[in-house]
């Protein structure tokens, strides 16, 4: 963990571009301010808005009737109450798995089609990343309020919490290995302490986020999958119970914290 000396800073500035300069020059508490004018996530949101209302799939339907928990088509505040239990699917779903469910039920896609391209790769945009950004943006400023009344929601929380503290893999790593101390960084990005009370609330509401280093918006499931990859664990399936359980744990721990996502991260 190095301090950011003037030399390092100017080197970083010289190597980086306009957007990064704006990012480093921004005042402290960048992530607490929500989407600023210089956050390229806006471009994802614009595309997501279009995709939301574009008829696709065997049924040539849009996503406009998708029920994210507050009723069909209600987006305002929807992200604040996810993940939650859904009667129709009989499962706890986060935003991404819920969009997949809507793609399958409303648009008639197979699971494979609905999950295709869920993370973008070089030269391949992800529709999921754009749609997620659009939906999340509609909850900016609204306090997190993921429900914990249903037994399935409590079970997901418990499983997520257990996994958070569970050490495994060739390096005997758990989430807790990196995320239980204050003031740590990984390169230039702050490493949140998720083990203390209120720790998740400081960072969960700022995801999904535009990653300057990757040039794209990354969803919560991408963040978690990448953490598990860094722990040298086997790849986890998209929308797997594990990822939704971890999301449920962090979301419920963040209760009351206003959503600032889409965030801007290095």
């Amino acid at each position: 963990m190095h301090a950011l000396t003037p030399t390092r800073l100017s080197l970083a500035l010289a190597a980086a571009g306009v957007a990064v300069i704006a990012l480093l020059a921004a005042p402290q508490g960048l992530e607490a301010q929500g989407m600023e004018d210089d956050n390229p996530a806006v471009l994802w949101s614009m595309r997501g808005e279009e995709l939301w209302a574009t008829p696709v799939g065997p049924k040539q339907a849009t996503l406009e009737d998708c029920d994210l928990g507050l009723g069909p088509g209600v987006l305002h505040g929807a992200y604040a109450q996810l993940p939650r239990y859904f009667e129709d699917s009989g499962k706890v779903e986060d935003l991404e798995s819920r969009i997949v469910t809507c793609r399958m039920t409303l648009q008639g896609m197979s699971r494979e089609q609905a999950e295709a391209g869920h993370f973008s790769a070089t030269g391949e945009d992800s529709d999921m990343e754009a749609v997620v950004t659009y939906v999340v943006e509609q909850s900016q400023g609204i306090p997190m309020n993921a429900p914990s009344d249903h037994p399935a929601e409590q079970a997901a929380y418990a499983m997520g919490k257990e996994f958070f503290y569970f050490r495994s893999g060739p390096h005997d790593f758990g989430c807790v290995t990196c995320h239980s101390q204050d003031g740590l960084r990984i390169r230039l990005q702050a490493l949140p302490n998720l083990a203390k009370p209120g720790g998740a609330a400081e960072t969960y509401p700022s995801w999904p986020a535009y990653r300057v280093s990757q040039g794209t918006v990354r969803s919560m499931q991408h963040r978690l999958s990448d953490c598990l990859r860094q722990q040298r664990l086997p790849p986890v399936a998209y929308n797997s119970d594990l990822l939704i359980a971890l999301t449920s744990y962090l979301a419920q721990e963040s209760k009351g914290a206003p959503i600032t996502a889409p965030g801007l991260k290095r």
Partner: peptide, 9 residues
């Protein structure tokens, strides 16, 4: 030297 997805003001 200008970044990907540039911001201009």
């Amino acid at each position: 030297a200008v970044s990907k997805n540039p911001f201009l003001s």
